[in-house]
């Protein structure tokens, strides 16, 4: 099993779960599994063209998957997949 870390702004879509377990073996599968389980998360992470939104980075352990094999990056047991979004402060309108 590997771990997925959900960032603060997206936790409302995962019933406030901060981490989740997965047995998926690629990043693509991790995201697919995650967005099937939490459908409202999909629009937050995936853009209309099906790519990862540009305000979000996906990391495998300490490395951006963009510098690995993108979404095809393999996820081995014990590794950590992090979703890291841009944040800018805590103001509301």
């Amino acid at each position: 099993m590997s771990k997925i870390i959900i960032p603060t702004p997206l936790r409302k879509f995962t019933n406030n779960q901060t981490t989740l377990e997965t047995s998926a073996d690629t990043v693509l599968e991790v995201i697919r599994e995650l967005t099937i389980k939490y459908p409202d998360l999909k629009n937050q992470i995936i853009d209309k063209q099906g790519g990862i939104r540009k305000y979000i980075r996906i990391y495998l352990d300490d490395t951006d998957i963009k510098t690995l094999d993108q979404e095809k990056t393999e996820v081995s047991a014990g590794s950590v997949v992090s979703i890291i979004p841009a944040i800018a402060g805590g103001n509301i309108t």
Binding site: P9, K54, A86, A88, I92
Partner: peptide, 20 residues
């Protein structure tokens, strides 16, 4: 290089969500 674009308005954190 880290975040090429900001979140589109309406996506999280949206204008209704804040706090520090």
């Amino acid at each position: 290089d880290l975040f090429p674009e900001p979140p589109p308005p309406g996506l999280v954190p949206s204008c209704a969500e804040g706090g520090v």
